[in-house]
Design a protein around this nucleic acid. Structure first.
Lengths: 196, 196
DNA sequence: TTACAAACATACTATTTAGTATGTTGGCAG
DNA sequence: CTGCCAACATACTAAATAGTATGTTTGTAA
């Protein structure tokens, strides 16, 4: 059972994330957050000493666990990595109901918006993305040792490439919708199969 | 020779773009723009009836010509498309001195930030990106007719994939710097060569 | 030259912003 | 029970914000 205070904090974080997902971090005001949560300003600033602290809490307390559970762990024990990466991309692009194509991916959005203007955000987000990249690299290297991937493949480069594609297609989707996603998926599948 | 008024307008647009590139559109205030340009508020609102109109003018009067001249036209008459696309990506990522890795690409940034929150921006930006995509598709199709690309390649999908990769690596670069760019370039080269 | 509109300048406003100061309440250790 | 502090609530502030109202200047057509 979660304490009342912890519940309030979670409520603030979740609603804030929702608003930030739709409007961006800098355009989401604390007044708007407290209005939609029915939490008072006093409560907000009791839990977070500043807006920035709240933003960083979203990264560390929501993004991190979600990404670790949803991407990093699933990549750890899998026998057919190539197929699994494709499936994961497909599933994250199409199946996740929390996502809205028009709004893209909350993590990617925050990288875009905040990493150039705040070193704290950049560091927190780069830790997160590094974690995902590392998980991909490790998985690919294992597959390489098992002979599922050619020996001359540079796993780190492949990981960067996959991540880039994912970030980018979230952007394209904002303009052109689902079609971007399926086009991307078809080509990444082709690319991934060439690694075998 | 440009009229004085046209010069002022250009000055506003160029400086605004600079500020938006660094801080984002919504976080760039008109007060900041007129401070750094030494243009008065009266002049600003004489040339643009609102901040949004100025933002759209950046897309239509700066992005469009730049992209048409720098990407669309170069793609029109070229004999080795695969190599040319790679060279263009390399050059746009590494050679262009107006770009700063930490800030990404101004067009991509604006897509990320504004297309979810403003239909006018979304439309203007989607026209722009569609133009680039179409140029890629046409070039690829020509190459396909000339036998430089396999017949079973879906040119539109490839174009989407390349664009996605570009958008995405601009994002990755914000976190990890140049290394993302070179990693991306190596893999896209591999991908492109598989189309032959 | 002079009229007059285009091109700018200045001063203002209503709202929104993050953050603060100063309260009040509710639960539970002693 | 009671004192005390975590957990909230309310009222405020100074700065920033997009935009407006009302000017003045400047080029140029007649």
């Amino acid at each position: 059972m979660m304490s009342k205070a912890a519940t309030t904090k979670k409520l603030i974080l979740n609603k804030s994330l929702e608003l930030i997902y739709k409007n961006g971090y800098q355009s989401t005001s604390i007044d708007e957050i407290i209005a939609t949560t029915n939490v008072t300003k006093g409560a907000f600033f009791y839990h977070f000493k500043s807006k920035e602290e709240m933003g960083l809490a979203i990264i560390n307390e929501i993004f991190f666990p979600t990404v670790i559970d949803g991407l990093v762990h699933p990549l750890e024990k899998v026998d057919n990595i190539i197929d699994e990466i494709y499936k994961m991309l497909h599933s994250i692009l199409f199946d996740h109901s929390a996502f809205n194509i028009a709004y893209g991916c909350p993590v990617v959005n925050l990288v875009e918006e905040m990493s150039p203007v705040s070193e704290s955000f950049r560091k927190a987000l780069s830790r997160l993305l590094l974690r995902v990249q590392q998980a991909l690299v490790t998985a690919l290297e294992t597959a390489q040792r098992n002979g599922q991937i050619r020996k001359d493949v540079n796993c780190k480069r492949v990981a960067t490439f996959i991540l880039s594609g994912y970030c980018g297609v979230r952007n394209m989707g904002k303009l052109f919708g689902k079609e971007s996603y399926s086009n991307f998926l078809r080509e990444i599948k082709f690319y991934l199969n060439q690694l075998k």
